[in-house]
């Protein structure tokens, strides 16, 4: 079953600018009417890093985190499931899914997770 990526982005009805996260007024034209859109297609890797000093809520040795752009222009941060950065290259295509990204009050928090295709 294809899992829904629960990201809602906001496309300005006046100028087409895509926003994620939400802004009350368009970054470009300052108008306030938005169409809600969902990510579509594969995600292309724009930037990434591997971090070893983690904040609260993570019981792992490191995290690989990146920013991706979906085929329809939505950009989002996500966690990348790889054991080594050697498997990553800027511009590559990653498979997105919605999965647990951290634990808060013993409950999983869900977010964007990415895997090499």
């Amino acid at each position: 079953m294809k899992q829904e990526i629960r990201i809602t982005a906001y496309k300005c009805k006046a100028c087409g600018q895509i926003h994620y996260p939400y802004h009350d007024r368009c970054l470009a034209c300052k108008k306030r009417d938005f169409e809600q859109i969902k990510p579509e297609g594969d995600a292309h890797l724009l930037a990434y890093t591997q971090i070893f000093n983690l904040p609260w809520g993570f019981d792992v040795r490191f995290l690989v985190i990146g920013v991706v752009e979906f085929a329809n222009g939505i950009k989002s941060m996500g966690q990348i499931q790889v054991d080594s950065l050697e498997k990553l290259k800027t511009g590559m295509s990653l498979k997105p899914y919605w999965g647990p990204v951290r634990v808060e009050a013993e409950e999983p928090v869900y977010g964007l997770v990415l895997r090499p295709s």
């Binding site: 996260p21 890093t49 000093n53 904040p55 985190i65 800027t90 990204v101 951290r102």
Partner: peptide, 28 residues
Amino acid sequence: DFVATMTHPEVEYPYGITLPGMAGMFTR
């Protein structure tokens, strides 16, 4: 974690991103 609270509370912080992490992405 305290320093990371200045990242976006909905679209950045939950992923565990830190300021060094932002700087790492920027550096690459």
